[in-house]
Structures are given as C-alpha cells and as structure tokens.
Amino acid sequence: MVTMEDIIRDGHPTLRKVAAEVAMPPSEEDQQILSSLLEYVINSQNGEIATEYSLRPGIGLAAPQINVSKRMIAVHLSDDTGKLYSYALFNPKIISHSVEKSYLQAGEGCLSVDEPIPGFVPRHARVTVKGITLAGEVVKLRLKGLAAICFQHEIDHLNGIMFYDYINKQDPFMAIEGAIAIER
C-alpha cells in the first residue's frame, strides 16, 4: 500500500523528469504499482482509513509522485453530477482538447506539494484521454469539468510539469478570458 511517506515532495528531481512509457503487456511489478496508486486515492477519500493510515486526501496520483518515473496514473473522483471516474491507466495520452479553457476557482493542490500555492491554473475545458487499463483494455475517455482538470494535472506529472507552472506569477488570480470557472 502507498502511504504519505512514499510520496516524494516538490523539489525532488523525479518530479521534473519525463516519465518512460510502460512496456506492454505490463510486468507484474508495474501492474502492482498502478494498482497501489488507485488504492491510495480511493483509501485517501475514506475518512476512517485516511485517519488510520495518515493519508492526505487526493483525487489523483501519478507514478512519478512515488519516485517511479513511468507513465502511470490513477484517478478517483465524482463530478458535479455524481458520475464516478475511477481509472488506473498505463501510458495515458491527451489525444484531443478544446480551445476553450477552464480552471478550478479554489485553485489546485498536489499531494507532492505541502503548502498551498494560490492562483488560477488554466486548463483545457474538455479533453479526450486514451490509455490502457489494468485489465489491458484500451479506453478513450471524453472528459470535462473536474475530471478533465484532474487528468491533465496527473498527465502533466508524467511530463515533469507541476500545476503551479501555469499560474500567472505577476497576477495569480488574473481572470482567464473566456474560461469556465469550476467549483470543487
């Protein structure tokens, strides 16, 4: 099981590396790692388990955040309609995106960043993500809202990009023209 001690912190060199593709079919070790990423995000949202194991709640986690520089992410969240997005993906890629932007009104956070970093993080309002599940199935997900933002955040980790790289340094809360503001 992944714990908070396994999650590396901002400043660690692995967080700035471009992660390697996972060879298909994945090794047993890679399947175990990906499975444990999903287990963490699910457990971190369960108050009892999170308290017992001192887990900080999260909705997504990427392999580089546990110092494994491979293209694997896990996401577990419900959108504003209550639809559940629970995915563990090998080699996820954004294959298309909208021109329209969106951002979380409250800003973004990250399990690898301990302090809050205020500011709007512009993202694509809609994305289509393609990846391979633990069962070996190729999936294509059309995402919008919080799910689109979360997948972009996690895929950025695979490319060595941190969410705060997008925040306007001079004016963190500068209005993002034409963007959709999303409440969490």
Rank of each mutant, 00 (worst) to 15 (best):
V138C: 08
P116L: 12
V139D: 06
D80Q: 11
L34W: 03
L34N: 04
I59H: 07
I132A: 02
P92E: 07
F120L: 05
G58H: 05
S36H: 10
S27P: 07
T128I: 08
V138N: 04
G109Q: 03
G119Q: 13
H76P: 04
Y85S: 09
T81W: 11
Q65Y: 05
A135C: 01
H97L: 07
L143Y: 15
K83V: 03
L84T: 13
M72L: 08
A125V: 05
V138H: 02
S36K: 11
L37F: 01
I66C: 09
G119A: 07
M72H: 04
L104Y: 13
I94H: 05
A50N: 05
Q31L: 10
H97I: 00
S112F: 01
V121N: 02
E48H: 13
I94N: 03
L111T: 10
H76T: 13
T133R: 02
C110H: 05
T81V: 05
L37Y: 00
L141D: 05
L37D: 00
E108H: 04
P122V: 02
P116E: 14
E28D: 14
K144W: 15
Y40Q: 02
A50G: 04
L84E: 15
K93D: 08
Q31S: 05
P92R: 05
V129G: 02
L61E: 06
V41K: 07
K140H: 13
P118C: 06
A88V: 00
V41P: 12
Y103G: 02
A74Q: 12
Y87W: 15
H124S: 14
E100Y: 14
A74G: 14
G107D: 00
A62D: 04
K70L: 10
Y85T: 03
R142A: 14
I42H: 09
G136L: 10
S78I: 01
H76W: 10
V75C: 08
H124M: 02
A74F: 11
C110K: 08
S98D: 04
Q32M: 13
T51I: 05
I42T: 13
A125H: 14
S54R: 07
S69K: 06
D114E: 13
P64D: 04
E52C: 04
I132E: 02
T81L: 10
L61M: 09
I49H: 13
S98A: 07
E29V: 14
